[in-house]
Structure formats: structure tokens, C-alpha cells
Design a protein around this nucleic acid. Structure first.
Lengths: 343, 343
DNA sequence: TTGTATGCGTTATCAA
DNA sequence: TTGATAACGCATACAA
């Protein structure tokens, strides 16, 4: 296999052309203040003319660190994380830091392996989803000298920094909303029971148990990834098991939309016969017919804050808050607007 | 800023412990056949015991190349590319090649800058979306010695290898389908007019002009990214401009779903009063009420094929086909099932 | 403000 | 089959 090395312009070439030493060029790039205005001008001109770009591998090797900020998400196809990634990207945009994604596919083992791979590259920082890292992963991270931001959840004991919200509280609020709207036989539709999903189920259980309305028959879950079609299937399953169910809390919006479609196929009126509440508040929820109630989460904002926090920390501006809860909001829409005389 | 260098186990450590030279360890890792069975066993034991992992930066610097396959997509939030990325990931999974994503945000300039960044890392290969690279980008790519796979479109003159399908033909087929179903006043809803979208519009125009049914008034587009909500707005816009429109081709499925919701709000029957056809065939199309006709594209498969092709080429197994058209299928559903007596 | 010497961890080359 | 030596391109430490 041949080298991919082409017409490599090195720092030495620049130095020679500019009539200075390689070190001065190196400094001109990283600490321009410590180089005379004259040299700086010369060097910059030569760099432009020659099209010099530093070799990141050489930089990493010599400096013992990189400008890479690793990001570990459990999925690249899940819209939730797509939004988070956008936020992370946006905030990293005009900085000198470079974002690199890794996909753990919801597997703690793959996550551990990704962390190893990243740490081997001596990243400046690591953004990692959730708080359920394996003990080995936590050890690796603690022993590394790189900064860490956990995202999408919240806890009292973050590894380092954290930006997220409480899934259990989100689910509690949604469930309370359904009760408040007069629903009494409330079910739960859940797909892919990752840790966050499980916490939502936990919150749902809490509230229903307190209200004396809990019925395990109304909990329908599947390990498959959530889709709209699956929402319809789960809804059908629930209705066959517990036909008197009058409302559902779906652990995400895909399922909620699928459930709505299933109700339409069965001639069930939403919200009169069936109340529906989703989670995440994707934009389509607002324009469904009827519009679907959901728990809005601030996914892109979480990405932005996390990256800003990371960059601040890396650039020596230690953030005031290193544990941020961005919360959630129950967006009440027609799909849970139960008529007084219903049921 | 301190080093991120920790307890680094180097190849020299392994060599010492195994009683061989560093070169032999290096060979044991890359060309085990050229190392004696005895040394190999020793070395592997020591590697395990010490937990040695090669430093990628040092490898890149010394070897003049990396095992990185760069992937440039125009969006990470667009479901289309999320699916492609999944395919790429899947196919790269058990190889020695590492995938790295870059997001050009639909900007040829950002794409060019990404290409430069990637090429600076001496990637083994580059997967790049579309065929509309800037002249400068094309030049950079041609001058580089790395392999290239263009994806998601097709052309006679690929830069190197290519896996995709024809957007213009997809749109033509969809439009013919609508005509075949008896619709006569067909409109087009389009968002974010990227090159692929524009080709779909072109195909739409072709067919309608040939059929003598073209009416520019029925083309409604916006530069905004497509959403379900936007589909509803565009549909409303179209109906106010051309109230006698009896069918629409949407340049993607989000818009189609939004258009369906808008019809529901207006009491328009789909498919009797309005035929709706989407593009991409996301899974939700099948479970909408009524199910929505769409043009199925093989996004994940494109990713898989592209990565397999790349890996084969990199490992010296030059692929038989380097220009693959994976086609598309019009999936006819109830949303375009126009009753005989309608209109 | 600038430069020199040295090392980062690995691989290519060539000789043994 | 193995090893010694010399890069790879840059940054650190220190000296001037």
C-alpha cells in the first residue's frame, strides 16, 4: 500500500522561506503574541503562499494531546440524538476544537470500547450520553486527564460536568397531566427500554401508584426500537389486554403518532375515547390531527450548553455552573383535552 | 495546559518485556506471518498483560497514512442521511477501518473545508454525498491518493467509485404514477432545494410537460428545511393559489404527512379530493391514515454498499462494479388510490 | 523575541 | 526471521 503523502509542505519549508526557524513558525501559529510583528507578517504570507497546514498527527505526537472533543451517543438514527448533535456542532463551530462522534448503539460494552479508542487519541474532552457508564468506563474516565460532560440526564454525582434533565420528573409531570385531565385508566407504551426510557416508566409508575390507579396490565413495552408503526401495534396490544384504557403515555413521539393512527383506524375519538401524550415534543406533534400533547425537552440546547461548557473549561474559563438541569415542559394539546362528560 | 499523557505503554515496553526488538512487535501486529510463532506468542501475551494499544498519532506520522475513512454528509439531522450513516457504520463494523463523520450543512464551501481537513489527516478513503462538489473540491480529491466513493446520486462521470440512484427518474416515476391514477391537476411541494431536491423537481416538470399538464402555479417551494408543519403550510399555500389541485408530489415524506394533516383539517378526502405522494418511504408512511404512497429509496443499503466497496478497494480487492445504481420503487398506497368517479 | 537540541511512538529501509 | 537506524512533522524546555 502506498503512502498517502503528497506534496507535503512542512513547517520547515515555511521556516526556510520566511527566513526564520521552525520554532518561530510554530509559535506564530499558537502564540502569535510572542512573535514580532515583522516575523508574523512574513510567516503568514509564506503560509498562505505555500498553503501550509499543520499535520495533526505530528501535533498530537509532539504535544501529547489533540484538539479533538469526542462525543459518544447511543444512536445516530434516533432523532433525539440528532438534535443533540446539531447543538454540539453549532457550539463547536467557530472554536479551534474539533468534534468527533462515536456511536455506542445502546451498548455499555461498545461504549467502553469507544472510550478506550477515544482516550488513545488523547482527546481534549469527552461528551458522553447518560449516567449509566460501566464501572470500568467510569474508571477509565476518572483516570484520564480529559474533561468530561455527561448529557441528557441528571444526577448528584456527575463524573465531571453535566447538562441534562430528569426523565423521571418528565414522566411524572406527563402522568399527572393525564390524571388532571380526568383520565382514570392510563396505560404506558414503551419501546427500546434504555436507561432513560426505564426512568420514564418509573416516573409513570410512581404517580399512578400514588393515585391508586396503577394496573400492570396497561404497561406494554418492547425491546425493539420505536417507530410509528410500532406505536400502532403496541396500542392494539394494549386495547386487547385492557379495553377500558382511556389514555396512554408514550415514551416517545413516534409511538404516540402511531397510537393516534391506530385510534383513527378503529374509529376511536382522540381525546374523547383516548387521551394521548408523547415524549420529546418533536415538531410533528403540533401539526397532527388532533395536535398531540407531549413533554418538550431541550435537546439542541443541551448540546449547545454542553459544548460551550466544555470549550470554556478547556480554554481555562472554568464554568460557573458545571451541573445544569435544563428541565422540560408539558405542552398540553388537544389530544389530552378530555371532554367533561366523556367516559 | 497539561499533557493528557498518562501511563502510556509503548511498543518499546512490550519489546523489552518480550525480549525482542520494537520492530518485531510492530510486525507482530501488522504482518504476523512474518514473525516466528514463538515470538508471536510471547509478544501477544505481553501485549495482553500490559494492555498495550498503539498510538494512532504515531502510526499516522510514521506510516504516512491512517485507517480513517472520512464521510461527508450534508446533514446529521436529516433522517435520510441518518439511515445512510447507519449503513456505513454497519459495514465498517468489523473491519480495521475507522469511520469519521463530517457535516457540510448543505454548503459547498463547508464541504471544501471539510475535504481539506480530512485530507490533512491522510485518510485511507473518503465517502462523499452527491455529485455537486465545487471545482476546487474536485481538484483536491483528484490530486489526493485516497479512494473516493460518491453516494446518493448517480452520474456517468464519478470521481472514483459511486453508489446511488437517480432522483430525476424517481420523481418521473412518481409523477407518472399520479397521472396513471387519474389525477390531472398535480402540484409539487418542495423544501430546502438542495441539488437532489432540484433534480426531483426537474423530473416532475419533465413528465407533466410531456403530458401537457404543467402549471407553474402548482409548484410551491421554500428554502427552509422540511418539516411536517411546513408540509401543512405549503399545502395551504398551494390550495389558495390553485384550488383545483387534485394531487401533490412532495419532495419528501415529512411534507407529505403534513399535507395529509392539512387535508384532514380542511375536510378534504385523501385520496378522493387529493392524491398525495411522498419521497423516500419512511416507515411512518405505511401506517398513516390513509397509508401514503411514496418512492422508496435504499438509503441504508447505499451506505452498506458504499462502505463495502471502499473496504474492498482499500484491501486490494478491486470491486467488479464501481458504479452502482440501487434504484427506487414507487410504493403505491391508498393516498393515491383515486376513485373512478372522483373529480 | 528567537533558536537549538531533543523527544513524541511508530514504521520503512536495509542489513544481518 | 530479526534488528539497528533513521525518519515522520511538530512542540517542549531551555538557552541565547
Amino acid at each position: 500500500m502506498k503512502n498517502n503523502r503528497n506534496k507535503t509542505v512542512t513547517i520547515a519549508d515555511v521556516a526556510r522561506e520566511a527566513g526564520v526557524s521552525a520554532m518561530t513558525v510554530s509559535r506564530a501559529l499558537r502564540e502569535p503574541d510572542r512573535v514580532s510583528a515583522k516575523s508574523l507578517k512574513q510567516i503568514r504570507a509564506v503560509i498562505d503562499r505555500l498553503g501550509y497546514v499543520p499535520d495533526p498527527a505530528a501535533q498530537a505526537l509532539a504535544a501529547g494531546r489533540t484538539n479533538v472533543i469526542g462525543v459518544i451517543v447511543p444512536s445516530v438514527t434516533n432523532n433525539v440524538f440528532a438534535d443533540v448533535m446539531r447543538g454540539l456542532y453549532d457550539a463547536a463551530g467557530n472554536t479551534r476544537w474539533q468534534v468527533q462522534f462515536g456511536n455506542s448503539r445502546y451498548s455499555p460494552l461498545e461504549e467502553e470500547s469507544l472510550v478506550r479508542t477515544f482516550l488513545n487519541q488523547r482527546p481534549a474532552g469527552l461528551v458522553i450520553s447518560g449516567i449509566d457508564q460501566s464501572e470500568e468506563t467510569r474508571k477509565l474516565l476518572r483516570e484520564s486527564s480529559c474533561r468530561i460532560v455527561q448529557i441528557m440526564e441528571t444526577t448528584d454525582r456527575p463524573l465531571d460536568m453535566l447538562v441534562g434533565f430528569s426523565h423521571i420528573e418528565g414522566a411524572r409531570a406527563a402522568t399527572r397531566h393525564l390524571i388532571g385531565r380526568g383520565y382514570r385508566h392510563i396505560g404506558f407504551l414503551g419501546a427500546r427500554l434504555d436507561p432513560r426510557t426505564q426512568r420514564r416508566l418509573e416516573g409513570f409508575r410512581d404517580v399512578l401508584q400514588d393515585a391508586g390507579m396503577m394496573d400492570e396490565n396497561r404497561i406494554v413495552t418492547t425491546p425493539q426500537p420505536s417507530t410509528v408503526t410500532l406505536g400502532g401495534l403496541l396500542m392494539a396490544d394494549l386495547l386487547s389486554r385492557a379495553p377500558d384504557t382511556d389514555a396512554i403515555f408514550c415514551n416517545n413521539d413516534d409511538l404516540a403518532l402511531g397510537a393516534l393512527f391506530e385510534c383513527q383506524r378503529r374509529g376511536l375519538s382522540v381525546p374523547a375515547d383516548m387521551g394521548i401524550c408523547g415524549f420529546n415534543d418533536f415538531e410533528m406533534m403540533a401539526s397532527a390531527v388532533p395536535p398531540i400533547t407531549s413533554v418538550r425537552t431541550h435537546r439542541q440546547e443541551i448540546g449547545k450548553r454542553a459544548m460551550r461548557m466544555m470549550v470554556d473549561a478547556l480554554e481555562g474559563r472554568e464554568p460557573d455552573e458545571t451541573l445544569v438541569d435544563l428541565g422540560f415542559e408539558v405542552i398540553a394539546r388537544q389530544s389530552t383535552n378530555r371532554p367533561r362528560n366523556a367516559g
